[in-house]
Structure formats: C-alpha cells, structure tokens
C-alpha cells in the first residue's frame, strides 16, 4: 500500500513542478550564498583582523617555462603553507588567475618570507628554487605576491616576491 501511494506521488511530479523546483532552488542558492558570505566575512574579521592581516598570493605570467608542482611557504622561519598543484589549478594560474596561498596575522614591522617552489621547467626539466623576500607590515591589510614570470632571454622562469598594493 505504501509503495502504491509512493508511486502515485512520484507520478504526480510533473514538468510544471520541475520549473517551480528550479525557481525554489535558485532562491535557496541565493540565500545560502548570502549567509555564507556574511559568515565568512565575520569569521575572517574575527580570525584575521584587518590591522594584522597579511595575504600571500601566487601568480604565473605566462608559464611557458614553468609549471608549478608544489610550494612551501615560510614566514619568519615558520612554515605557514604548503600546496600541491592540480592540473586544473595550474591551468587557472596560466589563464591569469591568482591563488591565495596563505593568510596570516603579523605584527607591524619587517618580516621575511621564503618560498620553496618545485615544478617542471623547459623540456620537462625539474626545477627546485628557493625565493626570499621581505615586506614591511603597516596599518591595514597587506598583500604580498609571489610572482612567477617567464624570462624569455634566459628561457627560464623568474621568481620574486613583491608587495601588492
């Protein structure tokens, strides 16, 4: 009997209800997005207040001579992030997107960053490189970019940290 009722219910699912479901789903997604945004903003402000926040980003321009495989990032001698790249992530970086590698709290003043990068270079050669950089944390949020770019003259990748204001 239960099955028959269930079957009748199932058969009552018409295309009209499907359109209504699509609309309800869109409304639901909108509200989930809103709540997720508000909670993320709140969480970020509680965990990483703007005055102490530093964000470290990775960009790849254009990536003919380098395909990243992994990155380990140290700040003031402590490892703060490690990342292994997927094919999709590398493709996104090559298309000009930027990855937020780490976000941390630091005091105002000078700080040192060291990144250990591995990946494939020209003709599939393995590249391992250490990159050093300093930044001066001041008032407000601070962004630092690990920029990987092609050095056409040397046919090699070039790595450097730079402030991103």
């Amino acid at each position: 009997m239960r099955c028959v009722v269930m079957v009748l219910l199932l058969l009552a699912f018409t295309p009209l209800q499907s359109a209504e479901l699509d609309k309800d789903l869109a409304d639901f997604k909108r509200e989930v997005l809103e709540v997720n945004k508000r909670l993320l903003l709140l969480e970020e402000e509680l965990l990483f207040p703007a005055d102490t926040q530093v964000g470290i980003y990775v960009s790849l321009d254009v990536g003919h001579f380098f395909e990243p495989d992994s990155i380990t990032l140290e700040m003031d001698g402590e490892v703060i992030a490690s990342h292994l790249y997927t094919e999709k992530e590398v493709r996104a970086l090559r298309n000009g997107a930027v990855q937020r590698l780490a976000v941390a709290n630091v005091k105002n003043g000078g700080h040192e960053l060291v990144a250990f990068v591995t990946g494939d270079g020209p003709q599939g050669t393995e590249i391992r490189r250490g990159v050093n950089g300093q930044f001066e944390k001041g008032h407000g949020r601070h962004f630092v970019q690990l920029h990987i770019e092609d050095d056409s003259a040397k046919q090699q990748p070039r790595f450097r940290f730079r402030d991103w204001r």
Binding site: G55, Y57, S59, K88, E89, R91, A92, L93, N95, G96, A97, V98, Q99, R100, F143, Q145, W164
Partner: peptide, 11 residues
C-alpha cells in the same frame, strides 16, 4: 588580488 582569486575559483 580579490579579482584574481575569484577567477582562480571560477576557472
């Protein structure tokens, strides 16, 4: 960076 980050997720 924020725009680059959105693009990173979108792509």
């Amino acid at each position: 960076p924020a725009y680059g980050e959105v693009a990173y997720l979108y792509l």
